[in-house]
């Protein structure tokens, strides 16, 4: 087989070291999932705090997936530009959502 490849996708040939890194991330994600479930049953005082804790853990897990499995921590500048714009619009959308949360029209009937 003619597989003497020259890798050009922005990553060097993978070593056993990087495989160990992927496995570390994998077990961290599994542990994070267990932690999320466990934390959801802990009464932190209010449901809002439980939501914040769960989203914080989910955020860390998302960073691990995007950063290491998707190699976003070592990507090209153009990819960062694309994701930077995306992050800006996504965060703007979430702020608009927060802004609209208590913005009921005056005729709305609440029970």
């Amino acid at each position: 087989m003619n597989n003497s490849m020259t890798m050009n996708s922005g990553h060097s040939p993978e070593s056993a070291h990087s495989v160990r890194g992927y496995l570390f991330v994998y077990f961290a994600l599994l542990a994070g999932t267990g932690l999320t479930v466990w934390a959801s049953f802990i009464p932190f005082g209010s449901r809002e705090i439980n939501i914040a804790v769960a989203l914080l853990i989910a955020g860390v897990k998302a960073f691990l997936v995007a950063g290491y499995f998707m190699h976003l921590i070592s990507e090209r500048k153009m990819i960062y530009n694309v994701m930077g714009f995306t992050a800006f619009f996504f965060i703007s959308l979430m702020f608009l959502t927060l802004y609209a949360m208590h913005d009921f029209p005056p005729t709305t009937v609440t029970h």
């Binding site: 087989m1 597989n3 490849m5 890798m7 990553h11 040939p13 993978e14 990087s18 495989v19 992927y22 496995l23 991330v25 994998y26 994600l29 599994l30 999932t33 267990g34 479930v37 997936v65 499995f69």
Partner: peptide
């Protein structure tokens, strides 16, 4: 929770599949 474990497992096997090709291990 089981489905979360399943998807995370599929993610590591996906990246290891790519690593295997990088290392010429079809």
């Amino acid at each position: 929770t089981a489905n979360t474990f399943v998807l995370i497992t599929s993610s590591i096997t996906t990246v290891l599949a790519w690593v295997s090709l990088k290392n010429n291990q079809f």
